[in-house]
């Protein structure tokens, strides 16, 4: 959440996507998120009165993209929801809603994709599908995927793991210096 500029760090500096977040005001942080960060929440957080297509188009519209709806449609087709474009969130299953959320997070081609317990509200099979979708998208878009999870097997699929316990980092594999050395 600090990385996305949703919360402020108590001390130190936070640099994400090449930008220093501490010096930004709320509107600058919002713009930074719109341009660099895609966020997937555990409980989807789709806008209930907008269709799947409109939900995905929101970040593009906010950034002034004239082809917002075309790109949103492509992204929804990429997550396998080309047939559900004009459905409202209440008309979609949990898995479909999370796919819409994934499409919405990816549509701006963000530098960082943050997924906060993305499968927490889904059954096992649907959860696995969503995870595959995210890892595929990460490769397809060549983006950084930051995954927050309680599932160690899921964490094992990531290139780097940071274990946080009671607010402090207690294990990091590989360590920062190893990553930097690569």
């Amino acid at each position: 959440m600090v990385m996305a500029g949703l919360e402020r760090a108590d001390k130190g500096t936070v640099k994400a996507a090449g930008q220093e977040l501490g010096a930004m005001n709320e509107d600058e942080l919002a713009r930074f998120r719109g341009q660099n960060v895609g966020i997937i929440f555990q409980s989807f957080h789709l806008v209930p009165n907008m269709t799947a297509l409109e939900n995905v188009a929101v970040p593009l519209e906010l950034s002034g993209d004239p082809k917002a709806f075309e790109r949103a449609k492509e992204e929804l087709e990429a997550v396998g929801l080309g047939h559900r474009l004009n459905h409202y969130p209440t008309q979609l299953s949990g898995g479909e809603q999370q796919r819409v959320a994934v499409a919405r997070a990816l549509v701006t081609d963000p530098e960082i994709l943050i997924a906060d317990e993305p499968t927490g509200n889904l059954d096992e099979t649907t959860g696995e599908q969503i995870i595959e979708l995210m890892f595929n998208a990460q490769e397809r878009k060549n983006t950084t995927l930051v995954l927050v999870t309680h599932d160690p097997s899921l964490a094992d699929r990531c290139q780097r793991k940071i274990r946080v316990h009671s607010g402090t980092i207690d294990e990091e594999t590989p360590a920062v210096r190893e990553v930097r050395a690569r």
């Binding site: 996305a4 509107d27 919002a30 713009r31 998120r33 341009q35 957080h45 806008v47 970040p59 906010l62």
Partner: peptide, 16 residues
């Protein structure tokens, strides 16, 4: 409130 939070996560300014 939740929708507003979503908008802000997606890049909407407070003024918008």
């Amino acid at each position: 409130r939740e929708v507003i939070a979503s908008f802000k996560c997606l890049g909407a300014s407070g003024g918008f």
